[in-house]
Amino acid sequence: MSVLILAEDVDATADEVVRALGERAVPVHRVNTAWFPSQLRLDARLQGHRWTGVLQTPSRRVELEEVTAVWYRSPRAYRFPSGLSDAERAHAALEAKYGLGGVLASLPALWVNHPARLADAAYKPVQLVTARRCGLNVPDTLITQDAGAVRLFAEEGASVTKLLGSNTLVEQGLRKLAFTQLLDRDGLADLRGIEVTTHLVQRWVPKAYEVRLIVIGTEFTAAAIRSATPQGHLDWRADHDGAGYDLVPTPAAVRSGVAELMQIMDLRYAALDFVVTPGGEWVFLEINAGGQFGWIQERTGAPLIGQLADLLARGIR
């Protein structure tokens, strides 16, 4: 047996999981797809009902048949020789995706998580509707290009807007960020550009605190995030330094709904975000199938690295 970790080169959480697996005497191979093709080679053959062969780096040989678990962390894009034309590079990338990516994606191992499931889970509208079907409380949500629809929605109650995908953008040589925004009168007065693409507007949920719920296999760890600043109260991501963390129990109904959600989305790991209202109701915001958890362990002492290492070590045998 062995565990394959697909991760980028510099990743402190991946480092800790490698170390934890080593402490459990579990063979682990950490590979970055960015090493392909110069430092990563594939030699695979279809035999029987599976791909067999090796994944080879200058210092490591991964026998595909021995891989029992894969942690799909954050591998990076292939790097091809600089002499290739754009068309040749695109060709090589696509062939590598179908070839290397296809062989790896078909490994009969425990995937945390399978990349195709990550792709499915990236769609927030899918998350929201699936969560509601699983019995979780989900805020009323509007996705639209229509300014009138936004104003009508906002008239019905306090509302926020957040991005459906990445909250970062690079332009003018700068990395820019946008966090959740409360819609106020000024903002609603000028909605120019809303027709350019879809936008998400959601009912503001009165908040006592927020929760990041880490699910690793069957282990549930809920960390309350208590923000001390107005900006952090609106979106805790905007004020990490000012937030306090403590572990809280997960209500049985939430646990049941999340377990069903994980099953439907075929996920073994997820970081879910909830708002907890002053009345104690948990309201689902999103599920991050590859969300961060390392800092939750550091702030609360919850043994998340160990839980993940144990899950990977069990794998499929």
């Binding site: 953008l169 820019k176 960020l177 946008a178 966090f179 925004q181 550009g193």
Partner: peptide
Amino acid sequence: PRGVRPWGLVAMRPA
């Protein structure tokens, strides 16, 4: 320009 740029990017600020 405003109106061309998606409205959702209004809140983008340099990190």
